[in-house]
Each structure stands twice: as C-alpha cells, then as structure tokens.
Design a binder for these strands. Structure first.
Lengths: 224, 224
DNA sequence: GCCTACTCATCGAACGCTCGTTAAGCTACT
DNA sequence: AGTAGCTTAACGAGCGTTCGATGAGTAGGC
C-alpha cells in the first residue's frame, strides 16, 4: 500500500546500527552542533570514517535519523487512526494516544524530531518541515470534523488544538518509564483533558478508556 | 525590596548592547553551538575581542543572556501576582497571563530560555535549572491552593499544570505580533482553557477578562 | 590651565586545537 | 575478482581564546 516496504530493515550491519544509536543519543542530549563525529564514532565503537561509508556526511546522518523517526511516528499514527473508525472523538483520541505513546516510549527520537530540525541544511529542512505540518494536521482534521458535527462545542478550536499538541509533545521532556505513571493511564488523562477543552461529552464517561484506544492499541508490538 | 536596583542599567555602551542583541538573535534562531563569536561580532558591528572585554568567554555571554531573560520574566510574574490578590483562580490567571505575554512579546528571549540552557557549563546549568524549577512552581502553587480549597475540581491537577505550562510556552513558537491575534484575546483564551481543564466555574463567566488580568497588567510598561 | 596617570572601550593579529571531510588501503566474504 | 565494511593518516578551514596596542575621556596634583 505504502511505498515503504514492511520487513527489509533488520539486515543492518552492527557498525551501522551502533552508529545510528550513538548519534541519536548524543544529538538528542546535547544537540547536533555540540557533538563531533569523532565522539559519535567513539561511542559507537567504530572509527571516524565508518560514518562516511554509510552517509555522505554529518548532516546526512542527522537527516536519516529524523526521517526514520518520522516514518516510525507516522506509521504508528496510521495504525491507530485506522483502528479508530470515523467518529471524530475516537479519531482524535487515536492521534493523541499514538503521539503520547511515541513521545514516552521513544523520547530520544522525539527530542530529535522536535529540536534538531533546525540543524538541517535548508533544502532538507524544508522537506522535513512539510512532514511536521502533515503531522500537525492529523490533530486538526478530527477537531475540525467534530466542531463541524457539533459534538465539540469549544469556541476556540485552534487554541485547543495547539494546547493538545503542546501537551502531547511535552511528554518527551518529563515522562520517565520507570516513574510512578502508567503509560496507559497517562494517555487516558491526556485524552480526558483534550475532551474537556473541546467541550465534548462522551456517551458513557464512566467506561474506563472507552474513548482512548483499543486493547490492541494499548499493548502494541510492531510485528505479531 | 528586591536586591536588583531599579534604574542603573541604561548606561551600557552601544557596543555591549549590540553584542547582546546580536548574540540573543543568533543563539535563539540557530542555537549556541551553531553560532561562532565571529558571526556575533560581525552582526553587532564590533570586533571579535570586544566580546572579551565584557565577558570571559562565549559561555559567559550565553549565561548572561539567560539570567537577564529570567530576571525579566520573574519581575513580570512578581508584578502580575502581586496585583492578583489571594484568590487562587486570579493568581493562576496572573501567572498564565505574565507567561503568555512574555513568550509573545519576547519570543526571542523565550526561545533562548527554553532551548539553550543545555549549552551552559554544568555548574551554571544547575543554577539555571533551579530558576526554571522556581518558575514552574509559580503554576503549581495556585493550582494546588485552588484544589485544596475545592474551587478547582479536576482529578488530575499535575497533568493540568503540565498542560498549562506547555501551552503557555508554546506561544513563543507560533505567535507573531503582526498576525491576526490580539495578545489580550490570546491571554483570555489561554486562561479560559486553563479554567476548563481545572473544572473551575468563574462567578460571572460573561465578564470579558474578569479573571485574566487588570487593565494595568494588560498595557504594561516597566517604568511609569 | 595643564600635564600625568589611569580607566574604559575597542581593535588587529596571532596561537593552538578541533572540526568535518578525504584519500588510500586492508580484510573477509561471495 | 569484486564488493561490503571497515581502518589509519592526513588536510585545510574555522574555532574559542589570548595578547598587545590605541585612542578617548577623566580625575588629581601642581
């Protein structure tokens, strides 16, 4: 269906893999320009020039990390939205759930996606910004649909959308998987607050998680 | 009252002033490590060494910008909270209003405060992180007070607090003073959404801006 | 009233180091 | 034989920082 194949990754040499892991960790923590390729290579346990075997330069390595992270996030959103059906409230809950989960489970990649795009070279940055806009539109669509259908009664849908996005993204900065918070509960609370801001009244508000995600969405694995 | 004097700044030489302005602009747009001190000096119209007349190095320049921005933000918060009295709802509205206004009016400084702290050297970074925690506690205090008093009925005060902070901070990234949005209206909507999430019912919800800020807070100038 | 001493604000030139990048070569497998 | 997956060694550019000098302003002693 999509242009991206389903299985073919895996066969990445260990050096390549550890290079990506080291670069992702360092870029996310300290920022693209603060990290030298010598530090990345050392952390990955390979030589400086291994990087140039896989990428034409430092910027291309960053671009690869960003696009790969974005691919992953988009795939998760696609899956969640597909399960959600056509009800705007459920569609929005699916996007919020997928986003919060990605920010929490892949916080390193999330920090990269959110903070390091400005280090890309202009052409690549423009391509990436387009993908970011698409991601932001995933929230806009169900909100506008719900407002048009009259089930979301907020007078300020744009402000609500921006607030929901900001809150979901912020998860990458504070959530710790070893903390007291269960991720499922966090998603549920985020959706609850989103509904509150939208002025949405779920039909059976007492059913735990009725509008957050399906069981399949909660304990997710990429391959069955 | 405070240890900071009221008038003595002003007498900063033109070179110093333009150095700070250039550094702030460049650091905010491209990040600390992406900008060389030669670029800053060139943009400021002074020589490289002028920087070393005022600061012991590049990192100290960043630290000065961050602390000065934080001083400014804290002073605005102090003023707004002092005007708000003791009602938790009004106190929270004052903090949200001061924050949103600062993020909108001083978006360059805000981006610096939010994104560039990680470039500080460890000791200075720790000092700065403490100030950030203090700023975050300005939201916690009125929320907890309102919950304790029973006027905020949300079951999730921590999530609401994080969402309010994230939404207020995000203003620095999207608000444009030449856009269609009036800043006063934006503040009002942000406070409205905060109240919604908190489950707070203002006594006269139709009074425009009744709970956002006083007229003095809306059209503010530092000196009378 | 003027010389002296000193500080402030700024400059140009250089230093040593680290950066991203390149070139050339070496295994080990297919 | 050829390619995939690296290696060591070097290059030039640009980095943050340092040094010493210069001119303008200014306060104090005579």
């Amino acid at each position: 269906m999509l242009s991206r194949p389903e299985v073919p990754v895996a066969a990445r040499p260990a050096g390549h893999q550890s290079l990506l892991a080291a670069a992702s960790a360092q870029f996310a923590e300290r920022g693209f320009h603060a990290v030298s390729i010598r530090e990345i290579a050392a952390a990955a346990g390979v030589s400086l020039s291994a990087l140039y075997h896989y990428y034409p330069g430092k910027h291309a390595l960053l671009a690869a990390l960003l696009h790969e992270g974005m691919d992953d996030y988009q795939a998760r959103c696609d899956e969640a939205v597909a399960e959600a059906g056509h009800d705007p409230a459920r569609r929005l809950a699916a996007v919020v759930g997928a986003t919060v989960r990605y920010r929490a489970e892949r916080s390193e990649a999330s920090l990269l996606l959110m903070n390091e795009a400005r280090a890309l070279e202009p052409a690549e940055r423009e391509r990436y910004r387009t993908r970011q806009r698409e991601a932001s539109n995933r929230f806009r669509e169900p909100i506008d649909a719900g407002v048009a259908a009259g089930i979301f009664t907020t007078p300020y849908p744009d402000d609500v959308r921006r607030t929901i996005i900001a809150a979901s993204n912020a998860v990458a900065q504070w959530y710790r998987p070893d903390g007291p918070d269960s991720l499922d509960d966090l998603v549920e609370r985020q959706v609850f607050l989103a509904y509150r801001m939208l002025g949405y009244e779920p039909r059976n508000p007492n059913a735990r998680g009725a509008h957050t995600a399906t069981a399949a969405g909660r304990s997710r694995r990429r391959s069955p």
